[in-house]
Write a protein that binds this DNA or RNA. Structure first.
Lengths: 344, 344
DNA sequence: AATTAGCACTCTCAGCTCGAGAGTGCTAAT
DNA sequence: ATTAGCACTCTCGAGCTGAGAGTGCTAATT
C-alpha cells in the first residue's frame, strides 16, 4: 500500500473538515472555492481518484463528490488531527460546575454525562467507577421491623451495596450492632476469597449475615461495569444521518441492550491505561449497528483500582478534535475527583 | 354538547381499534368489511360526519378516512374501554421475574422499566420511591483516609444518602463510631425541623457531621422524585408516527429534560391515590411536545409515606387496554414489594 | 512530468404530471 | 331512518424532466 503524499494529507484533512460541516459529499470545485486552494479542481480530481483507489475516500454514486471512508477517518484521526486544548474559559466553566455540585459521586457522573453530551453534541455515556478487586471495607446492620434487617455494605473503593433480608429470629439492634462491629474488626480489607478462608466463630445470625455479605461481594465481582449514566440521546436524533429512523434505531439500540454495552465498553480496550482516549470508527467491523457511528471512549479513575468508562457516540462525521478534547478533559477531571475522594 | 348514541359509541370503539392496528385513517367501507357490520357504509359515513362535528373524529384531509381526536381517545378510554386483566400466564411470568431478582430495589426498578417497555412496546419510566417526610433512621461514619470521612445516612423509608467530606482534624474510627452511635440514639425518626430544634451537646466534629446530615436531608426534601429508570426508548422510534425524526425528537426530549419530567410526573396527579392509573392523552394541552403522544402513569408505594411513579409513553394511537393493565399490574407489584421491604 | 483548461457525460434531486385507489358528501329511492 | 348510486376530492407512487453539481478524460501548457 502506497503512502499518502503531503498534499493528499492536506486534502484529506480539508475533505474531512468540509464534510463534517456540510454533511454532504464534497466535490473538487467546492474544495478550491472554500479554501482558496492554489491548485485547480482538475488536480484535485486526480488526487481524489488516487485516494479513492487507496481506500481513503468513497463516492456515494458516480458523479457525486467524495466522502471519507472509515479508513479515511481513521487515518485522519491518528495522523492528521491536531488536538486542540479546550479553551480555558470552557474548561473553567466545566470545572466550576463540578465543584458546585454537591460532593456526591452520582451528581458528578450525571454532570459528566451532561457536559459530554452538550459539548460534543452527541449521545454520552458514563459508567460509575467500579473496582476489579472487591474487598470489604465496612458493614452496617440496621434493624427495620420484626426480623427484617437492612444491610449496608461499603466496599473498598467506595461502592455501597445494600440489601434487605430476614433473619429466622428477631434480633435487637444492639446485637446487630455488635455483630457488625465484630465483622468490621475481622473482615477489614478482605477479598471474597480471603473471606471464605476466614474462620470466624459465628452464631446462626452471624452466618446468615456473612452469607449475605458474600452474596453481595460475589455480585459486585461479577459486575463488569458500574451503574450507567446517559445523556444527549436526542442529540444523535438531530443529526441528518439519522433522519431515517432505521439508522437512529440501530445506533441507539446499542445503548439499550445492557450486555452489548458491557461488551462494547470492556472489549474496546486492550491496553486500558487511564487517560488514553480510544476512537472507534464505524463499529470497526465488529459492531454492525454502529456502522454509521463513531465512539470516543476513555477510561478514568485509578489504574487497576477503581475505574470507569466514559465517552460519546455520534455519527462517523463528527468534529473529532473537539470531541476528543472534551472526552479527555472530562475523563481527567473525573479521575481527579475519584482520586481525591477515594475510599481505601 | 349532544351525547353519543349507542351506535356511535360502538363505531368509535371500532374506529379506535382499527386505527391502533393499522395506524392509518379508517374509512367507512373498511369498517363494514373488517367487522361485518349490519349497516351500510353510507350510514357509517353519516354517523362519522356527526361525530366529527362533535369533535370525536378528525379527517387528516378531505376524502381520507377518520382518525380519533384527543377527545375521541379520551372518551374511549374513560367510557368505552373494558380493561382486560393480564393473562394469568403473563402475570406469573412477570411476578416470577421479580422474585428471581436479587432482593434489591434498584434491580426491581430496572426490571419494572424493562417489563413495562416490553409488554406495552413503548418507552417506560420508573422513579424510585421517595418519601415526602424525610426523617432520620440511621447514621454511619466511616474513616477513609486522613481526615476524610464517608457518611452513610439511611432515611426512614430506606433511602440511602452518602457523602464524603473532610474534617478539620484527623479523627479515629472509634471516635467516629461512638459519635455515630450517639447521634443514632438521639436522632431516631427525627425530621429535619425536629433535628434543628434538638439541643445536642456536640463538639466541633459532631457539629460538622450534624451539618452534613442536615444538608443531605435538605437535599432529600427538595427532591421531587427519586432516581429515574427508563427503558424502551427505541420502541417509540419504531412506531410509524415517529418515522419523522422531528416528532421522535420532541417526544423523547421530554425524557431528557429533568425539570420537565419532574413537572410532568408531579403535576399530572391531582388526586394521587396509589393504584389509580392516569391516562394523559396528547399532552392534554399543557405539554406541547407530547401532542402526538399518550402517557399512562400510576403512582405506587405506600400512600403518604413512600411513593414513586411509573408509566409508559407511546403514540396516541396506543393499545390502551393492554397498556393500562400492564401499568396497573406492575404498579401493584412494586407497591407490594415496597410494602414488604419498608424501612420504618 | 506535473498541472490545468475544456468538455462530454453521469447522476441526483426537486418539481411536475398522471392515473389508480380509497374515501367522501350528497341526492334520491327504499 | 337507511341505503344505493354517483360525482367529486385527495393521496400516493411511478415516471418524466431539467437544472446543478461533479466526474473522467484528453489535449494543451508550464
Amino acid at each position: 500500500m502506497e503512502e499518502l503524499t503531503e498534499r493528499q494529507k492536506i486534502l484529506l484533512s480539508l475533505i474531512v473538515h468540509e464534510h463534517t460541516q456540510t454533511a454532504k459529499p464534497v466535490g473538487s470545485a467546492t474544495l478550491v472555492r472554500q479554501y482558496s486552494l492554489p491548485i485547480s479542481s482538475a488536480t484535485i480530481r486526480n488526487e481524489m481518484t488516487a485516494m479513492e483507489e487507496m481506500g481513503y475516500l468513497r463516492q456515494p454514486h458516480t458523479s457525486a463528490g467524495r466522502v471519507p471512508t472509515e479508513k479515511g477517518y481513521r487515518f485522519f484521526v491518528s495522523n492528521l488531527l491536531q488536538q486542540p486544548m479546550l479553551p480555558v474559559a470552557t474548561r473553567n466553566t466545566i470545572t466550576h460546575q463540578f465543584y458546585q455540585a454537591q460532593q456526591q459521586l452520582d451528581e458528578w457522573l450525571r454532570l459528566a454525562a451532561s457536559v459530554l453530551a452538550n459539548h460534543a453534541q452527541a449521545a454520552s455515556i458514563v459508567t460509575a467507577p467500579h473496582s476489579k478487586k472487591v474487598a470489604f471495607k465496612h458493614l452496617e446492620l440496621i434493624s427495620t421491623r420484626a426480623s427484617q434487617v437492612l444491610m449496608v455494605l461499603v466496599l473498598v473503593g467506595g461502592e455501597i451495596r445494600q440489601q434487605i433480608f430476614s433473619l429466622d429470629e428477631i434480633v435487637s439492634q444492639e446485637k446487630l450492632s455488635s455483630l457488625a462491629a465484630e465483622l468490621n474488626a475481622h473482615c477489614q480489607n478482605c477479598t471474597l476469597t480471603q473471606l471464605e478462608k476466614l474462620d470466624l466463630d459465628l452464631d446462626d445470625v452471624g452466618n446468615t449475615v456473612l452469607g449475605v455479605i458474600k452474596d453481595q461481594m460475589r455480585l459486585s465481582e461479577r459486575l463488569v461495569i458500574g451503574e450507567i449514566y446517559m445523556d444527549g440521546l436526542t442529540n444523535v436524533l438531530a443529526e441528518p444521518e439519522f433522519a431515517d429512523t432505521e439508522q437512529a434505531l440501530s445506533a441507539l439500540s446499542i445503548f439499550e441492550e445492557r450486555n452489548k454495552l458491557d461488551d462494547l465498553l470492556s472489549r474496546s480496550f486492550l491496553g486500558d491505561e487511564i487517560g488514553g482516549v480510544q476512537v472507534l470508527i464505524g463499529g470497526e467491523g465488529t459492531w454492525e449497528e454502529l456502522r454509521q457511528c463513531s465512539l470516543i471512549l476513555s477510561h478514568y479513575g485509578i489504574q487497576d483500582q477503581l475505574t470507569g468508562t466514559l465517552g460519546i457516540l455520534g455519527p462517523m462525521r463528527m468534529p473529532y478534535g473537539q470531541a476528543i478534547s472534551t472526552v479527555r478533559f472530562v475523563a481527567n477531571l473525573l479521575s481527579d475527583l475519584v482520586a481525591e475522594n477515594l475510599i481505601e
